[in-house]
Design a protein around this nucleic acid. Sequence first.
DNA 1: ATGGAAGTTGTTGGA
DNA 2: ATCCAACAACTTCCA
Length: 407
Amino acid sequence: MERHPSVKTVSYERDYDPYSIKRDKELEDFFNEADINVRTFGTHVLYEPTQVLEKNGGVAPLTYQGFLKVVNKLGKPGFPIPPPTKLPGFFDLQKILNCNEGIEFAGPNKTFDVPAIQELGFETPLYRSPHHGGESVALQMLDKYFLDKTKVLTFEKPNTSPAAFDPASTTVLSPYVKYGCLSVRLFYQRLMDIYRNQSHSKPPVSLEGQLFWREFYYTAGYATPNFHRMEGNPICLQTNWRLKEKDDVDEEASKHLEAWRDGTTGFPWIDAIMNQLRQEGWIHHLARHSVACFLTRGDLYISWERGAEIFEYLLLDADYFLNFGNWLWLSASAFFHQYFRVYSPIAFPKKYDPEGNFVRKYVPQLSQFPKKYIYEPWKAPLEVQRKANCIIGKDYPKPIVEHDVIV
DNA sequence: ATGGAAGTTGTTGGA
DNA sequence: ATCCAACAACTTCCA
C-alpha cells in the first residue's frame, strides 16, 4: 500500500466481526504510520455492541428480554445523518488526486460503473435473482411497504407467511440493510414516524422488534469468541453432529447435506424453500427456521456449521452475526434450548399455505398434485401420482428420511 | 441460594 | 374455530 500525498484523512464505518476487526486494525496501523488521520463511525447499528456491553457490566445479554432491558436504559437510538449535498465526481477526483492518466479503479469505461460478474472472473450464474440492489430501490421498497400503515402497526412476525411470494409478506429489506443501501437508523426513524401516537405491536414480534433482533445478535456475537463455530464457542452446546468437521467422511450424511442444499430431500416444503433460496437469494425468516431445524436437530442431525456455510454463500442478506446467531438458535445450540419444539415439514406449512401454492411454484414437478398430498406426495396412491404427471421416486424424489422416526 | 418462571413464532389430540 | 394440556434430550434468569 502507498500513501498519496493529498490524502490527509480517511474515514470509515466501524465493523464488528472478526474478519473486519482484523482488517481495520491493519489499516489503522498503516494510516498511523503514514501520518494520516483516521475517523471512524458506528452508524450501521442502532446501538454499538460496545455501548450495550458497557451498560450491562461487560457481558452480553443472552436473552432477548434481557437485551431489551439494557437498550431501554441506553435511550433512543441515534438519528441517521443526512446525505451529503455534494460529492466530488470523477473529474474532481482526478484534479484532487492530481493525476492525468486514467484511474484504473474507474473501470473499463472510466465511469465507476459496477463491473459485470464475468469481468470479475466468475461464471455466468445459473439464476437471475428478482431482487435488485441499490439505495433508490431500497427507498422505494420502504415507501411502498410503509404505505399500508395498518400492516406496519400490527406487524407480527409469526403471522407473516413464509409461503407468500409476489409479494412476500415481509419487507425484504434485509439485503439492503446488510449492504448499507438502507440505513437501519433511517428504517427505525421511518417506523417511529408511523408509530407516533398510534397503538402498535411490540417486540419481539413487531417490526421494531425485528430491528432489535439484529442488534441482539450483533452484541452477542461481538462478545463471544468463535461465535461462528461450535468448538471454542463458550455459549454453544457441544453436540456430536454428523459432518461436525467440514472434511468428515460420512457418505450418507454428505448425500443428505447435498440433497438439502439442492432441494432434493423429497419433502416438498423443504425443497421449495431451498429452491427459492438458490434461485433468488432471499427466503422468509420462518422458512429459514424450517430448513435449519430440518438440517440439524429436526431430521438430518448435520452440524449447523455446514448449513451456515451454505446460507452464507446463497443469501443476499448474509450477515456474520445474524446468520451464525440464528443457526445457533435454530439448532438449539445457544439462546434457545427447547429442543422438542421441532418444525414439521408437513404440519407447519399447512397453517400458512393449505393449497400448496408455494410448493407448486418452486417445485414445479408437483404443480398438478392435489392439495391433500402436496406436502407428503409419497403417500399419494399411484393413480393420483399418474394423474398429476409426477411419479414419486422417478419425477420427484422419495423422502430421504422419515420425519417421524428421527432419534 | 434454589426453585419456579420464562423463553421470538411446535405438534398433536382432545374438549 | 379456539383453547388447552401433554409431550419431555433444556437453560437462564431472578426473586
